[in-house]
């Protein structure tokens, strides 16, 4: 408002010599009323605060560790990679979505980790004060973003990552989960399992209802539990079936990838 006022004053000074007295009086009255008019239109003061969204990887409720044997029914499994793209991260307020981010890449198993513990991945957003009723996540890369390729994105953008794009699908690899399962019963997982899921058809969104109060700096933790991710209708994925051990690279055969991506919402926990 101050800026507008200064700007008006300058105009007034510039054109003043060209006006007669009647016009000058009218202009003066208009100028005097301007601040009130401006104040009337001004939005209510809304503070924004840092909102930290943290993603955490679990296995059966415990923090995930790479190369650690976990019970998977009567089998042992281990994982060595878990990463995923999340689109359209939004808070919900009064039924409206407040977009925090178009896309983030959540890599729980970076090469630089000092040990085998999956890392927590945090993002900070500036969020208006208020009470929000939920969090919306898009599992994967939404279609308009997935229509482009890494060379279309600037350095540092999550979708600049060449390694997460597969030309064979003309798609980003939305999620990678890799590991091994012990099928011969010697407690040493030896059979590779991997789930590389991508293409527009497997993208989906979900809203988790939860009161999230943002007043001052606020935080929310989102957990993805790998055991839940591979549990369908209460049944663990049968890893003795070879077609359940790996996702196909064939873009026309995405059934398993679809199943996994659709199940992400069931594997998501808000803390």
């Amino acid at each position: 408002m101050l800026t507008n006022g200064v700007r008006c004053f300058c105009l007034y000074q510039t054109f003043l010599p060209t006006l007669n007295m009647k016009h000058r009086i009218v202009l003066f009255l208009l100028a005097a009323l301007l601040p009130f008019a401006a104040c009337k239109d001004e939005d209510p003061v809304t503070n924004t605060n840092n909102f930290t969204l943290t993603f955490r990887a679990l296995y059966d409720g415990m923090p995930l560790e790479k190369y650690t044997n976990y019970s998977f029914g009567d089998k042992q499994v281990l994982y060595d990679k878990f990463n995923t793209f999340i689109s359209n991260i939004s808070l919900i307020k009064d039924g409206q979505e407040v977009l925090l981010s178009d896309i983030e890449w959540v890599n729980f198993t970076p090469d630089s980790a000092p040990d085998d513990r999956a890392v927590e991945v945090s993002f900070k957003y500036s969020v208006p004060d208020g009470d929000y009723t939920g969090l919306k996540l898009g599992y994967g890369v939404r279609a308009d973003l997935n229509a482009k390729k890494p060379s279309d994105y600037p350095v540092g953008h999550p979708l600049y990552l060449e390694t997460e794009y597969w030309p064979g699908w003309s798609s980003y690899i939305f999620t990678k989960v890799q590991g091994k399962v012990d099928l011969d019963g010697d407690n040493t997982p030896e059979t590779s399992i991997f789930y590389h899921c991508g293409s527009d058809a497997v993208y989906n969104e979900a809203t988790m209802n939860r009161t999230i109060r943002v007043a001052g700096d606020a935080a929310l933790v989102v957990e993805f539990d790998l055991k839940k991710l591979f549990t369908f209708n209460g049944q663990l994925l049968d890893l003795t079936v070879p077609s359940n051990q790996v996702t196909s690279h064939d873009a026309s055969n995405i059934a398993l990838g679809q199943k996994v991506m659709d199940n992400f919402k069931n594997a998501t926990i808000l803390q």
Partner: peptide, 24 residues
């Protein structure tokens, strides 16, 4: 790049691109 549809015995997956993927 495992772009052979339905990876057949004639065109099996050499798996190279997992480590040597991307434009570089």
């Amino acid at each position: 790049f495992d772009e052979g549809q339905n990876a057949s015995p004639a065109l099996p997956d050499a798996q190279c691109f997992h480590c040597h993927g991307g434009i570089t």
